[in-house]
Computed example of a mutant assay.
Amino acid sequence: MSKECAFCGKKPQVGNLVSHSNIKTKRRFNPNLQRVRHQDADGTVRTLDVCTRCLRSGVVRKPVVRTNG
């Protein structure tokens, strides 16, 4: 699973983990990515890794789920 949003390109950032004694070690801030199904403008459905901000803002268009009955 790639650590990059398919729409906005959000990637992991690097920062410091600071302990109680103020010792600093490197750490990564990973984006909150979810694997969702997205329907393109031409109707094709793909599974993409998308950050939660793009999901919430409505950038992702989910396909219609049809049931038999």
Score class of each variant (00 low, 15 high):
Gln34Pro: 00
Ala41Ile: 09
Gln34Asn: 07
Ser2Pro: 15
Lys3Met: 12
Asp40Thr: 13
Gln13Tyr: 02
Cys51Lys: 07
Pro63Gly: 12
Thr44Leu: 01
Pro31Leu: 06
Ala41Pro: 00
Arg56Ile: 01
Cys5Gly: 04
Lys62Phe: 15
Gly43Ser: 05
Gly9Cys: 01
Val60Asp: 09
Arg61Asp: 12
Lys62Glu: 15
Pro12Cys: 05
Pro12Lys: 10
Thr52Met: 12
Gly43Gln: 08
Lys3Pro: 00
Gln13Cys: 03
Asp40His: 14
Leu48Gly: 05
Ser19His: 04
Cys51Val: 09
Val36Pro: 02
Val18Gln: 04
Asn30Phe: 11
Val36Gln: 12
Gly43Glu: 08
Thr67Ser: 14
Arg46Trp: 06
Arg37Phe: 06
Arg37Lys: 14
Val14Tyr: 06
Ile23Gly: 00
Gly15Tyr: 02
Asp42Phe: 08
Val45Asp: 01
Gly15Ala: 05
Arg27His: 05
Leu55Asp: 05
Gly58Ala: 11
Arg56Ser: 15
Ile23Thr: 07
Phe29Trp: 11
Ser21Ile: 03
Arg46Pro: 00
Val45Pro: 01
Arg56Trp: 02
Ser19Asn: 10
Gly43Tyr: 07
Gly58Ile: 09
Pro63Ala: 10
Thr67His: 14
Pro63Gln: 12
Asn68Arg: 15
Cys54Lys: 03
Phe29Asn: 11
Ser21Tyr: 03
Pro31Ile: 08
Phe7Glu: 01
Asn22Ala: 08
Thr47Lys: 14
Ser19Glu: 06
Val64Arg: 15
Cys51Leu: 11
Asp42Pro: 02
Gln34Tyr: 08
Arg66Thr: 15
Gln13Leu: 11
Ser57Tyr: 04
Asn16Thr: 05
Met1His: 13
Val59Ala: 15
Leu33Asn: 02
Thr52Ala: 13
Val36Trp: 02
Gly15Thr: 14
Met1Glu: 13
His20Asp: 05
Gly58Val: 09
Asn68Pro: 06
Val50Thr: 09
Thr67Pro: 05
Thr25Pro: 01
Asn22Ile: 04
Cys5Ile: 05
Ser21Arg: 09
Gln13Phe: 03
Gly69Pro: 04
Asn30Pro: 00
Ala41Arg: 12
Val59His: 11
Ile23Phe: 05
Leu55Glu: 10
Thr52Tyr: 03
Arg66Trp: 13
Thr25Gln: 10
Asp40Tyr: 09
Pro63Asn: 13
Ser21Ala: 09
Gly15Val: 02
Asn30Ile: 04
Pro31Thr: 10
Arg56Cys: 05
Val60Arg: 12
Thr44Val: 07
Val65Ser: 14
Lys24Met: 10
Val60Phe: 09
Ser2Trp: 03
Val59Trp: 08
Leu48Pro: 07
Arg46Glu: 13
Val64Leu: 14
Val64His: 13
Val14His: 04
Cys5Met: 07
Asn22Leu: 10
Arg53Leu: 14
Ser19Pro: 04
Asp42Trp: 02
Val50Cys: 14
Asp42Tyr: 07
Gly69Glu: 08
Ile23Val: 10
Pro31Asn: 09
Thr67Cys: 10
Lys26Trp: 04
Gly15Lys: 05
Asn32Cys: 06
Leu17His: 11
